[in-house]
Nucleic acid binder design. Sequence first.
DNA 1: GGACGTGGGAGACCAATGACCAACAGATCA
DNA 2: TGATCTGTTGGTCATTGGTCTCCCACGTCC
Lengths: 347, 347
Amino acid sequence: MTNRSVGIKEVAVAAGVSVTTVSHVLNDVKYARISPETRDKVKSAAEHLGYGPNRLAQALRTQRTGMLGLVSEDIATTPHAGRIILGADEAARARGYNLMIINTSGSASSESRDADVEALLERRVDGILYATMYHRQVQVPVNLGSVPSVLVDSVSIGGSITAVVPDEEGGARAAVGILLAAGHTRIGFLNNTDDVPATRDRLRGFRATLTEAGLDGDAAPVESEISEVQGGYEAARRILARPDRPTGLFCYNDRMAMGAYRAAAELGLSIPADLSVVGFDDQELIAANLYPGLTTVALPHYEMGAWAAGNLIDAIEGKTDLALMALHPTILDCPLVARDSVAAPPP
Amino acid sequence: MTNRSVGIKEVAVAAGVSVTTVSHVLNDVKYARISPETRDKVKSAAEHLGYGPNRLAQALRTQRTGMLGLVSEDIATTPHAGRIILGADEAARARGYNLMIINTSGSASSESRDADVEALLERRVDGILYATMYHRQVQVPVNLGSVPSVLVDSVSIGGSITAVVPDEEGGARAAVGILLAAGHTRIGFLNNTDDVPATRDRLRGFRATLTEAGLDGDAAPVESEISEVQGGYEAARRILARPDRPTGLFCYNDRMAMGAYRAAAELGLSIPADLSVVGFDDQELIAANLYPGLTTVALPHYEMGAWAAGNLIDAIEGKTDLALMALHPTILDCPLVARDSVAAPPP
DNA sequence: GGACGTGGGAGACCAATGACCAACAGATCA
DNA sequence: TGATCTGTTGGTCATTGGTCTCCCACGTCC
């Protein structure tokens, strides 16, 4: 139990040696030649007094704080940020680093974002993780470049910062794939209306997978609405009113899928007997709690956080070069999470 | 934009003064008598060089880091932690403090919890916020006492640490109140089976409010299950199968309410026409997205985080005495969030 | 009696803060 | 009228808790 009032000096006095020796012993400095007896004296004195190193002083001298700054958007709005934080925290702690977290609003001005990074820089973090709430392009704060940095769930507009993002297209392919595997041939897509990478990439994955399966991907029904429950409901009502009603629905996210559930219920369609549904995001609160459980595609937030922290630390410790990795964003897998909303199409 | 390589010394040279003067000017030291001209010279030199203070060095010298440690349970599991973090971050930043966050598992060993606090102590945080995921009693790490600390959403077993918790009973009263106000007289409670303060206090609030309204609170129907969707479903099936079927249901949380929705749908009961439902927690993802929107009671996570950070800083700065406040936990209001799941009982 | 090996210490340094001191001006005093 | 006062302006230097680069003392070996 660290006693804030005892420093290396007190330990030195108690052990009857110099501070240099204490430092050498406690840090296991390789070139230091200290007798085993002296080592023991120092160690037991340190333990006895409840010595704990002052990381501030260490950092000042070594120019290494062992702290990573994490600026995250809208921490409280979705559980996504929590996953990123958790992944980053575990990866960081495994290597002796800690996280300093600053929350920023998705709608914050660029000055306020600059100030956030400034605060981190003044505290001399060794590197910065910059996380957004959903996959998109961002204009990164100018001062972000002054220290090793990694973007999480976004790519920088200039493309100059190393980034890690989800494999949107691959996720869509997995979603459509499970519907195809169940035997569906009339598959529709409830898409988002925002012009973000996820919208485009998931649509591409949707069409491509159908085409590769020998269906007409370009003609497959797609209805777009804002990506909320109500939008999903409306889009589902429209798509299910088509003459060639789809038997399988791929939804842009779990919230839209929740709307599709309601539309299906109103139309007397039972899931999955009459209609199979696949979501995206794996928001546990929704996906696991809908009835029947929603088969969906998980976004790798934990993994992105861990990857980002791990590679940031590698760069800080000179093991890798972030500039090289900045050329192309790293793409992480979006695994399918099978629950109970997919079955064979009705005969 | 902070330039890591320029310190107070470089500024001093550029301005043609001593480091002391630079320090005095930049910190607006009251007793320092420096001519306006010199001040200008220093300030413009600092700006020019992109000087930013080294908070590490400041902290070492002043014995104040301006950092608050936050150890939070299960950051990624619920959105609750995010709210606490956000509240604490905003309150802290408003007063010039930043947050160092460490995640801990709800099931972590006490050694691992001690180690978490140790890490914070070695970094010389000025104070510690210890947040749990749900309202309960905790055995706090022993070393927590060595620095000002506040418990968020829990109380310590010895009662020795200042704590802030939600007004569970008041929330239950508000929930039952809105059902009474709508005209219901047969009101049931779907309770949790865990033996935690929330379970007991909400039940007490439920019964007391009914009794105070002239009904028989002690005889009111209560069904307990684990506080998940499935548990809510089962408890609702049971309570709705009673001969004197309730027309209003108060649910331990929004997940159980979600189960009640399904039970109602299966029984052909329309919400709110045939059955009114009130939840607890205000998990937006669920409450706002169910159909109809769920009227519920919000837990003040943001407010608890902000209260904790604010009072912790007051204590650090000597404005208040935490020991005095440790006598009784501070109780924060749980406001009712009205949506569309409550109406008058069927005739 | 130099070379070498062993065990350990001195002191500069990291980037600030802050108590106290110094230099110089004009003012006051005997 | 020279000496002391006093207010203004700003500098000196120790200090914070470590780390790290020399450097020294003492044996011993050939």
